[in-house]
Design a protein around this nucleic acid. Sequence first.
DNA 1: CTGAAAGCGCTAACAA
DNA 2: TTGTTAGCGCTTTCAG
Lengths: 334, 334
Amino acid sequence: VATIYDIAKKVGMTAATVSNALNGKGNLSEATRHRILQVAQEMGYRPNLIARSLAQRRSQTIALSVPYIANPFYGEIAATTEVVARGYGVRTLIVHTNEDYPRGDALIDDLVAQRVEGIIVMPGGGSPKAIRTAIQAGVQVVCLEWEEEDEIPAPSVGIDFLEVGRLAACHLLELGHRRIGLIAHGFAKGYFNHRLRAQGFSEVLRETGIEVSLQFGKSTAESGKKAAYALLGLPEPPTAIFATNDLMAIGALAAIWEKGYSVPDEISVMGFDDIEMASFTHPALTTIRADNVYLVEQSLRVLFELIHKQEEVVLPPLGELTLMRRASTGPAPS
Amino acid sequence: VATIYDIAKKVGMTAATVSNALNGKGNLSEATRHRILQVAQEMGYRPNLIARSLAQRRSQTIALSVPYIANPFYGEIAATTEVVARGYGVRTLIVHTNEDYPRGDALIDDLVAQRVEGIIVMPGGGSPKAIRTAIQAGVQVVCLEWEEEDEIPAPSVGIDFLEVGRLAACHLLELGHRRIGLIAHGFAKGYFNHRLRAQGFSEVLRETGIEVSLQFGKSTAESGKKAAYALLGLPEPPTAIFATNDLMAIGALAAIWEKGYSVPDEISVMGFDDIEMASFTHPALTTIRADNVYLVEQSLRVLFELIHKQEEVVLPPLGELTLMRRASTGPAPS
DNA sequence: CTGAAAGCGCTAACAA
DNA sequence: TTGTTAGCGCTTTCAG
């Protein structure tokens, strides 16, 4: 835990010089620079990033806030965020509310106290109020995949969630399904976009005169399973189920197998997100994929433009959606 | 972005007093304390944690380093670490090498530069060399679930990986299997404990005169699937497969279905970790569960004892293992 | 009950 | 090519 003073003393020079040497700034003779580097090495010098951040008034750090990091959907996003941010020479703090929505406020607050330079917030990763406070405190924020009844509290990059539902509905309709179930995340704070997924889905079906049976879940496989059980217990159980995320769809698959139905011959199932696991269920899960890499890249681009006070930040177009047609959906049984 | 000076000026007092008021230290009159708090509020004061850390020489932060955060196994561990650490009043930095083992060195280095007070390192989250350097730099480290040929570079809490393999072998033996396949993570740096899982497994079987067919994977479902394909292509394909983690086991399930075999009637499959998904595969995956909450709690306890220079830190006993007997394993076909 | 002073480890002009 | 000086925002004795 040597400081630049320690090494300055040792080489008989001043701290400023050492600092310059260490950072490749100023013009020092190759000789002294070399000497300094070597001594630093010998003394096991480690820069103190805390001191540096204070002096520079830049933490070189951004944060990503999500609801729950053990959810692989967010895990995948966290991983790509970290990589892309590193490309910008910046560290990423990964934080989550642990599904405890109100805690998002404290979380965001703490991030501004830590003086992160920007925050990417996903729905459920912080309340609009907390976000507005953060922005007032001078921290840049961009909302990723948000959707709100009111205005979204910061520049936002995302997808068309209504379209997600519509795509799903059309797919099932094309396959001839008429009795259709829907599993959606309960319309709680921070999950408004699930509502839109459900809405797009229902609307398309209603136009065809189909009334969907709705059950609520909580974005986990467990809850999806429970919801599916409820659907299967109906007097006229659905021949197709759409869950507003893959985890719940996977739970639904489990319920269906347990009840002895076969997928997709008797019941079709589809989800949304295309998490890694979706390719490995039995049968492989039909789902809708958003281009998350694109979304992360764009939100980071926007965030950095904001941070560097670009005159005009242009928000990217909505991310594309792809139907990943796999084996869990098939023609409606006759 | 007001500082304590700004608010000191406003209330006509000195920064020290404001600091005390804000932190509930010293003895101020209730009146001024109240006044200060109020003004702070009005000015939208946010403490600067960077400055505080520098002054206190304590970052109040620890880190958890894992190979890949999008892997739900690590996601679950990260989530519980964060919760438990918060109980100690400390923030957790979640970092991963992104499967790029050599990067672990730079990662750990950066953490010491950030002056985290301690690091929990999981296998693949950092090299022994990097860990030793960190310790020399004064950062406490505890290794979680490690296993090495050489000495583990820091106090360690974990489980008996040989026993994992043995348990799996016994389970399959009891079910009458004799042609048995094994999918193990390639014996690369940072994955030595997979080797032990495999070894425990093979040893038990060898004692019974059974030679296992081994295929290597890379801890992903995709790689597990590929490995299983290889196993199934054997002249005498196995009637049971053990994969050294659940993700690979899930990949194996997918391969087996694709090839048209049925589980468990024709082929049994089991894994290790008991990730959330293991309960939702079809059929539900038999696996072995380590008590990760216990392990995380203990490693954090040890870490904090180290940080606070407890005279004698006692390492906890190895974590318990539980066979989670589910539907993916059954009697060997006759 | 409040203030003065020093310092945490580093950076950033500006001089010399 | 190197040194001086000031300061980042906060904490922490120790006085008053």
